[in-house]
Computed example of a mutant assay.
Amino acid sequence: MTQHVSDVMTSAPVTVEPQTSVTAVARMMRDENIGAVLVTDGERLRGLVSDRDLVVRAVADGSDPNNTTVADACSDDLVTVGPDDDLSRAVEMMREHAVRRIPVVDQGQHAVGIVSLADLAIERDPESALGDISAARPNT
């Protein structure tokens, strides 16, 4: 049975505008218990920022997180999939581009979800270490 990206993706992803501060995004990630936020400019997907991006591209550089915008920290060379794409396509894209998360966009390039390596591990191999860890309650 073919599975689609929509079967495992996180729907209604958290989005922010490019001018949002790194501090505000970090707080959203903490409060929502998520590791990535999509950056949108109106309806258009502009980028993805992960917790690691915030650390490596903003904090480690010594930038003031209150005055640094998420546009300065996000990945903007995105790989995307559609909700009706086969799940195997998402796996292939993650491997090919060495990414852990892929935005899911509809035909109009509007962000409708995000699929993560953890989502795939829980779905495809729940007994694996990654699947088990990903399904566990957060330790925060």
Results as ranks from 00 to 15, higher is better:
Q19W: 12
V105K: 15
D64F: 14
N66C: 13
E17Q: 13
L130M: 14
V14M: 02
T80G: 12
D7F: 00
G108F: 03
L45E: 02
G62C: 00
M28V: 04
V16K: 12
T40M: 10
M9R: 05
E123N: 15
P65W: 11
D72R: 14
P103H: 04
G35D: 08
D85F: 10
E123P: 13
D132P: 03
L45M: 10
L38A: 06
A129H: 13
L54N: 02
D7G: 04
A73M: 05
D53M: 06
A60L: 05
G47S: 15
A90K: 06
P126A: 05
P126G: 03
Q107K: 10
V56C: 00
N33M: 05
R30P: 01
V112Q: 11
P83R: 01
S116K: 02
V56D: 04
R137N: 04
M28C: 02
E127W: 00
T68E: 10
L117K: 08
T68A: 14
L45Y: 02
V59Y: 00
A73H: 04
D132W: 13
A73V: 06
M94Y: 06
T69D: 12
S116H: 01
V49H: 08
A111I: 04
T15Y: 08
I34M: 00
D72C: 13
H97V: 06
S63D: 11
V37I: 14
P83Q: 01
M94Q: 07
V37M: 08
A135H: 08
G47R: 10
N67V: 12
A24Y: 11
R101Y: 08
T140V: 09
I102K: 12
A26Q: 05
G42N: 05
Q107C: 12
R124L: 07
A90Q: 10
G82F: 11
S63N: 11
A129F: 15
R95M: 07
N66H: 15
L54P: 00
D106G: 14
S6L: 11
H97I: 12
G42S: 05
V22H: 04
M28I: 14
Q3D: 02
A111R: 12
V79S: 07
V99E: 01
P126Y: 01
S128T: 06
L117D: 11
A135L: 00
L48Q: 12
A135V: 07
A12N: 06
D53R: 02
R27W: 07
Q109S: 15
A90Y: 14
R44W: 05
T10K: 01
A58M: 00
S75T: 14
E123C: 15
V81W: 01
P13Q: 00
N139Y: 07
